[in-house]
Design a protein around this nucleic acid. Structure first.
Lengths: 214, 214
DNA sequence: TCACCCAACTTAACACTGTTAAGTTAATGG
DNA sequence: CCATTAACTTAACAGTGTTAAGTTGGGTGA
């Protein structure tokens, strides 16, 4: 049955070729700049050939980005996975998230700035597992902060806190992506906006102001 | 010259009709759902008639939203314009911004979640005037907070603080709009997410934790 | 070996989109 | 009353994502 295998291998190669072509265009120019016909031209197939491997454009691009959800989780793990101190781990997650967004604005846009019909079951990675789910990583860190008594007593709902931390950094990143070169505002350096946000939110949640001078 | 006047009046009426038709569709279904042909059908003109009043679709929809930038500034003024206490005024601005975003998600999306080529000179309202420029309103409140010595001494750059406050609330609003019904996350109530964010950021900026128990 | 078959792929088209060049029409000023 | 012209329409272009129908070439059973 070597023929079957070869055929399947060829299929997967073409599939990968499509994804590669799409990824390159998408990463540098965004969703609208990727057209089925341009992908087809690039891989030297007809546009319809793509539909033999992907249901539609949405699905194709979404697969690129689902892959990146896992990448994000890996980045969290790499930058903060081995940090014991929960607050430092939380900060590392924030830094990882920030860097990811700044480095991959188009992916970030599709992942976090656009309403998508994707359901959890569309994703391959394990939900709730901090090594594959960035949100779970964040939730873990927050939970550990609460358990360690670092936050004020009224700050006890880990989901709520995680969603707030996420929103804070997302605010900086998404505002940068959407309005970063808007001349209406005299933007301060992006890194400063990030660090001030990070500091303010953490300080706002903490039981005692840390006097060690950050 | 009564005829000239009548003609101009008729032009403006049609222009208004176009905007009204577009507004209704846009507010309820968003940018893509508004097509030139649908507008045309609604107002019982040909699609090309629209181009006699607007350069292109982008310009048309943009005009709707520019109008809303002024509305936002008015809302800031209405909800916080007469508040003396700068911190309360800042909180009122946050509340106004939050409500605006939740009530007009499509407008919000175009105003703050999409990269637009619009330049400051495209806008009719006065930049820097708190009564017409919501960002100026925010900046004013932050400046007054700093002058009143409410913030920690290292928190002295009003622009930086304003951009951080903006990003914080924008994070809550935009995450709600983009991922509000994403089942991956067990979302806490939107109002709670907003109030926790507001409290955390303000507390994080302030010199002394307010002990009056919010 | 050879006809058949079927899977992979292409061609051509559909139904949309925003936009524009060219043509029509009706009201106005002379 | 006629020529002009501004306002508007028709028809088309160049795109888009998507699909029904047709081609073709390699694998397979006889």
């Amino acid at each position: 049955m070597g023929i079957q295998e070869r055929k399947q291998r060829e299929q997967e190669e073409l599939r990968a070729k499509i994804l590669d072509a799409a990824r390159e265009m998408f990463a540098s120019e965004g969703y609208d700049a990727v057209t089925m016909r341009k992908i087809a031209e690039k891989i030297e197939y007809s546009p319809t050939a793509i539909y033999l491997h992907f249901r539609d454009k949405e699905t194709l691009i979404r697969e690129l980005c689902n892959h990146d959800f896992l990448e994000l989780a890996k980045k969290f793990q790499a930058m903060g996975g081995s940090i014991e101190d929960p607050l430092e781990r939380l900060a590392a997650a924030g830094q990882a998230y920030f860097e990811f967004g700044v480095e991959h604005p188009h992916h970030y846009r599709l992942m976090f700035m656009i309403k998508s019909p994707a359901k959890p079951e569309d994703f391959s990675c394990m939900r709730g597992n901090p090594e594959e789910d960035a949100y779970a990583f964040l939730l873990d860190a927050v939970n550990d902060c609460i358990s360690a008594g670092l936050f004020r007593p009224e700050i006890a709902d880990a989901e709520l806190v995680a969603q707030t931390c996420w929103a804070a950094i997302h605010g900086v990143v998404s505002l940068h992506i959407a309005k970063g070169d808007d001349e209406w505002v005299e933007w301060r350096p992006l890194e400063k906006r990030f660090s001030v946000m990070m500091e303010a939110v953490v300080r706002g949640l903490m039981r005692t102001p840390d006097g060690d001078g950050g």
